[in-house]
């Protein structure tokens, strides 16, 4: 029982990281109908920005955090203007290829600027964790879980109860109709990219003290987050969160009770099962092709 509780906590913690990155995937997919394969690199860039501000320059952690997120907002805007906007009238394939290209560019740019050495980023708290009965709670995982809960509530409020959120939803549902109603579609897409970059960056900053800061950190997380997005139902915000958490828990329990070396295999086995038996994911609805 003690073992199961410990595994459950860790599974939720790592699942929350997948969920945060998956959320970025979903938001951009809803707004543009394309998958942004550079979402994982947003996490990596933000973690390196934190290292530059908090470690190299020695600025206060909170200020570094805000500056890193501001940097990500800027990167999101540049990404939209440089990668998505010029290809917005093309089919989804060139855009997806462009995002893959941008992901390679981001990873190698950071490699060229910062070098290949993995970096250590301390967490928010001085205490690494707390012992609650038989379960050790890593303080950084606790923070990640708390931030995920807050973001779920914020997203619900933002998309359902604010005019901007409703405009973003309208744009994602039908761009032509939204445009006819006077909504600036390009502005909405710009806001989506900025928000997604900030979300990806937030995931990167939060997970950096656990996984260290390295060039590969983004792609490793993004692969699982992508699987989580499909499991949850592509395009569904709640699905991304549930998919991420489910994936984290499944792989942690699978590793502990079946096989550690095949840990990643469980995640992708679940993904394949979903693609075969429920391709629309947990929350997705079966949609017929338009006539």
């Amino acid at each position: 029982m003690d073992l199961a509780l410990q595994l459950l906590f860790t599974g939720i913690g790592i699942g929350a990281v997948y969920a945060l990155v998956a959320l970025g995937f979903v938001l951009i997919f809803r707004a543009t109908n394309v998958v942004n394969f550079a979402q994982g690199e947003f996490s990596m860039v933000a973690a390196y920005l934190m290292v530059v501000f908090a470690v190299d320059l020695g600025w206060p952690y909170w200020l570094s955090f805000l500056l890193a997120l501001a940097g990500m907002a800027l990167l999101g805007a540049i990404f939209n203007l440089g990668v998505y906007y010029p290809l917005r009238h093309r089919t989804f394939l060139p855009v997806i290829i462009a995002t893959i290209g941008a992901s390679i560019l981001l990873a190698n740019s950071v490699l060229a600027i910062y070098g290949p050495q993995p970096q250590v980023l301390e967490g928010w708290f001085d205490t690494p964790g707390i012992q609650l009965g038989p379960v050790y709670l890593d303080s950084q995982y606790l923070l990640i879980i708390a931030v995920t809960i807050v973001l779920v509530i914020f997203n619900y409020w933002f998309f359902e109860h604010t005019m901007l959120g409703k405009k973003l939803q309208a744009t994602s549902q039908d761009k032509e109709m939204a445009s006819l109603l006077g909504i600036s579609v390009s502005t909405m897409i710009m806001i989506t990219f900025i928000y997604s970059a900030v979300l990806g960056g937030l995931a990167g900053i939060l997970v950096a003290p656990v996984l260290f800061v390295s060039i590969q950190m983004g792609s490793t997380i993004a692969l699982k987050a992508f699987a989580a997005t499909i499991i949850g139902g592509f395009g569904d915000v709640a699905g991304a969160i549930i998919g991420g958490l489910a994936l984290g828990i499944i792989e942690t329990f699978g590793a502990a009770y079946i096989s550690v070396p095949y840990k990643d295999g469980f995640a992708f086995l679940v993904l394949v099962a979903f693609l075969i038996f429920r391709p629309q994911g947990i929350f997705g609805e079966r949609v017929a092709e338009k006539a």
Binding site: L3, Q6, T252, V260, P261
Partner: peptide, 20 residues
């Protein structure tokens, strides 16, 4: 005798196996 796959993000199951 516990193997693990490279580039793992979490080693909790491995650590718990060592502990047990």
């Amino acid at each position: 005798d516990q193997g693990y796959a490279n580039q793992s993000q979490d080693f909790t199951p491995v650590v718990l196996a060592v502990k047990q």
